[in-house]
Design a protein around this nucleic acid. Structure first.
Lengths: 344, 344
DNA sequence: GTGAAAGCGCTAACAA
DNA sequence: TTGTTAGCGCTTTCAC
């Protein structure tokens, strides 16, 4: 009511609440933390709650962290922040973490990932994160070792590691199958695949889905119609050029990711091919840029935010001992039809 | 040498270092913090340093934060993470902060920004950030009030606020001038401008630069050749459609930002106009997507990472009392010639 | 030049 | 059911 605050009001502490409620700080602490074991008298609890509200009390997370050795902070490591795919994952993870009272510290490591490994230990030791979300690109062995050294629970995104049981992955095989079946349904028979990293988790599975769809349709995949394109614009462009120079030329392409699809479009334009007139292109992954490309790109949408969210929730469950294993395989959300695919 | 670590080794504390060096914790603390006031004997300092290195000691930032009431954490608020422009700013801010021993907590608020204001107080109160970097889009008044309420130093990015003296902005007028002069040099005379938010800080200045360049070249800007496009794909497309329906049709367009340029390209393709054959397009801001569009977009590059870095450094100076005002105006880095501009 | 001691704000045994 | 007490790991007066 009469907001008679001192000019340089300092934030109210728990002891202020306790004094206002006429109880000890320990009692106030119990009430405010909803301590299940100890029962508190109803009127005491009400008085404390009222005092806390009246003072607009916010617990000091730093003091709490020091005492409990829990920072309520998660760390996520991504290779490059300026990638729409990772941006979505981060958004999903951040909302989920915040909803559970955790905050998210973001660290990005170059895709070269020479220094990648130490980021994990830095987050764990210097920033005292309670758990790690790993989306970086170093080798399985290096990542496994780095996470082990970090000494906190970790969930790996987008691949499976022998050394770290917890993961959230996409059903990449299904995604590639959906993309390929779309092209088959349009009548294409000479279909190429711009793979990411063929030895990587997603690379393998997308190739498998691509081949499976062809097989089911009775199409024998021509050798040389799978090219490694990596996850970059340049890689996609280069791989597409190779494909265009091959003896049997594809009428359609399944790109493993958005950036390589953009590179493929660039190469096709440069070669004077029309899309989808001469070549149809479909990409796995969806983001706003799909709509900015020319022509707007048909894609298979994968639940990126959900990946971030499930990983964060799983990690928090792990940290709080509420579960012992996190393993999600997320299904594709479906085909997003735009203008880059048509009958041959 | 003989790494005889206990199985569940807990992190070494300052007291461990002190004991190993045969000194008191207070002395160890002085050495490790390079306390200027107190002089420490050279050999004592050497022993402490050696012990710290031998034990691989890392100070516990949480304990330090509790004691000093400094979290060494900065908060940055951006509208949408999945925008290449903000991603670059964040990367710049993060590196600069890390280099100075600070970490960066990222919060994103929807562009609607209804809830935008409370994010600042949440970061300040609940996360105890030492300072704020504000890149969100709410009204000047709302942002000023929110930052005042947060009660920590703040630097505003990309605009100037009466209420908050500290800012880092681009020389938007120069950027628009460079873009417009490029088109004039190519021989264009009917040049349109896809403005962002015409009342906003950047919007105003970009319009001013656009007009100034035309004036200097003796070209009278036709009315109706400045359209508000906002900062989105749809906005750009809509504004371009309007321009195409206008009585005097432009042969070239200066777009205030990448996304609206992408929208303009979309609208031009839809209308069957060729770029740059019928219409040239140049955008302010540069990022990888400029190279993915068709045709690859000529842009004026602005130092995005530098903006993040300067803002973070200035904020840290403010926090540590090393300076009392931060005000940077960053010059454009120049024109990036790609394929979307040509003589009329 | 170095050590002793207090305490940042909070939680969690343990006592009463 | 509530209060007393002891710290979490660190910094910082204040003595010596």
């Amino acid at each position: 009511m009469s907001a008679e605050k001192p000019p340089h009001a300092t934030a109210p502490r728990l002891s202020d609440v306790a004094r206002a409620a006429g109880v000890d700080v320990s009692t106030a602490s119990r009430v405010l933390n909803g301590d299940a074991g100890h029962r508190v008298a109803a009127d005491t609890r009400a008085r404390v709650l009222a005092a806390a509200r009246a003072l607009d009390y916010r617990p000091n997370p730093i003091a709490r962290a020091l005492r409990t050795a829990r920072s309520h902070t998660l760390g996520i490591v991504v290779p490059q922040l300026d990638n729409p795919v990772f941006a979505q994952v981060i958004i999903g993870a951040e909302s989920a973490a915040r909803a559970r009272g955790y905050s998210l510290l973001i660290a990005h490591v170059g895709p070269d990932a020479a220094s990648g490994a130490e980021v994990y230990t830095r987050l764990a030791q210097a920033h005292h994160v309670d758990g790690l979300l790993a989306a970086s690109l170093e080798s399985d062995a290096a990542l496994g070792a780095a996470l082990a050294r970090a000494g906190v629970p970790a969930v790996v995104l987008n691949r499976r590691l022998r050394a770290v049981p917890h993961h959230v992955v996409f059903d990449s095989e299904a995604a590639a199958r959906i993309a390929t079946e779309h092209l088959l349904a349009l009548g294409h028979r000479h279909i190429a695949h711009l793979a990411g990293r063929p030895r990587g988790y997603n690379g393998r599975h997308r190739i498998a889905g691509f081949r499976a769809a062809l097989r089911s349709a009775g199409v024998r995949p021509a050798p040389g119609l799978v090219a490694a394109a990596g996850y970059t614009l340049e890689g996609g462009a280069r791989a597409m050029q190779t494909l265009l120079a091959a003896p049997v030329r594809p009428t359609a392409v399944v790109a493993a990711t958005l950036l390589s699809a953009a590179g493929a479009l660039k190469a096709l334009h440069a070669a004077g091919r029309s899309v989808p007139g001469d070549v149809s292109v479909v990409a796995i992954h969806d983001a706003e840029i799909a709509d900015m490309l020319y022509p707007p790109l048909t894609t298979v949408r994968l639940p990126l935010r959900a990946m971030g969210a499930r990983a964060a929730e799983g990690l928090i469950d792990l940290i709080e001992g509420r579960c012992v294993a996190v393993a999600h395989v997320l299904a594709p959300e479906g085909l997003v039809l735009r203008s880059s695919t048509a009958p041959p």
